[in-house]
Computed example of a mutant assay.
Amino acid sequence: MSVFSLKLAIEQNRLFNGEISPQFTSEQTRKARAFHQKIAGYQPTPLCDLSELANLFGVGKILVKDESQRFGLNAFKMLGGTYAIAQLLCEKYQMDINDFSFEKIKNTIKEKMTFATTTDGNHGRGVAWAARQLGQHAVVYMPKGSAQERVDHILNLGAECIVTDMNYDDTVRMTMKIAKERGWEVVQDTAWEGYTKIPTWIMQGYSTLADEAVEQMKELGIKRPTHVFLQAGVGAMAGGVLGYLADVYGAQNLHCVVVEPELADCIYRSGVKGEMVNVGGDMPTIMAGLACGEPNPLGWTVLRNCATQFISCQDSVAALGMRVLGNPLGADPRIISGESGAVGLGVLAAVHYHPQRETLKAKLGLNHDSVVLLISTEGDTDVKHYREVVWEGAHPTTA
């Protein structure tokens, strides 16, 4: 067997208290999922059982939620953006979210609205998609270094897309300033003082995927996962999903590992320090969707209370995950997973091939009885880079 060492810094969460958030409960999730179920073309994304890989890695099960098949948008992010926009419009026009329909609200809106957001790619695509469904306008700002393919995805949905010369967090601040000056509605998945309502809706929208996974596990005869690996940028997806899962299973019954790139590991550093820590400067990680330096305080609160461990890892871990998912063992299904989507599986693979494999497995509580849930949050949203990694061997595991 090959042996190689990739960087995995693992920090135990010493602030864990198992406290459930009232904002991210199974009740709130059911409301969000009921909304998504009314959108034309809705269907749960697959939960893939990688039984042969699980056998190789010495765990009971590896289950991967494949979000590349979400509404043809190749990522999960639209779950949050559409739900937040719907809630925003219901509040503005005094409608009940339970009665929401795109056609009804399109006919209700009296004057054209503009939704503004900052994105690394997938969130902006979701906001642009929702705006088009409603016959409205979207303006999407992206940080420097954004792939042209991700820009084109947004432009093709009829939105305006501007790539700045700033990092993600500075671009968020610029977006807020411009939107305020021009009277636009900001739909952002991070929160700050005075801006929490829309990020809360976005996080609740993300939890639809977790509700689907719980239902799918029941259909497979699985009582509950023992582990869930959640990647984090600002921590919105991780917080929304973990909040729901902790409410369903109890945080004490779930070993949650939050994974980030070492070049943008604000949640990991927050876990080390015990309070929110910002990471500044350029964040040139291949995990573009996770290249965020400032934690969402709503997400951080859930992760602080309910996550078990935080991991900061090098980019080669994500690249390894992309290759393993794209080249499955035996009869395991093939999953096309992008840089940000594959990092959870990459951690499992990096542990398996590490010279201290047994020590790392013990630290993560992994054994033959472990049932591991992973979220592949995106497909090949940057096809050129996906092929550079999977075909050409970019970001190799060995020198």
Score class of each variant (00 low, 15 high):
F71T: 12
S2Y: 13
G393V: 07
K197T: 15
Y42H: 11
S376L: 03
T164M: 13
Q356M: 08
L56M: 09
D189R: 03
V390F: 00
W184I: 10
E358Y: 09
D211Q: 14
M217S: 08
A210S: 15
Y353F: 15
F100A: 07
T114M: 03
R304W: 02
R30N: 10
V172M: 03
G240Y: 09
S101R: 05
Y206T: 09
D169F: 05
I286R: 00
Y93A: 06
D49V: 11
A264T: 07
N167K: 13
N167G: 15
H255F: 04
I85V: 15
A32V: 06
K218Y: 06
P225F: 14
Y206P: 01
A147G: 08
R132G: 06
C313N: 11
G280P: 00
K7Q: 14
I109Y: 03
L157R: 02
G393C: 10
Y386P: 00
T29F: 01
T285N: 05
K180T: 15
V64S: 02
F229T: 06
C90H: 11
V234L: 07
R132T: 11
S26C: 13
P297L: 07
Y386G: 01
N122E: 15
T118A: 11
M217I: 11
M78K: 03
N296E: 02
G194E: 03
E260T: 03
Y93F: 15
T200Q: 14
G250T: 12
H137E: 15
Y206H: 13
T175E: 07
S207V: 06
A147V: 07
E193C: 10
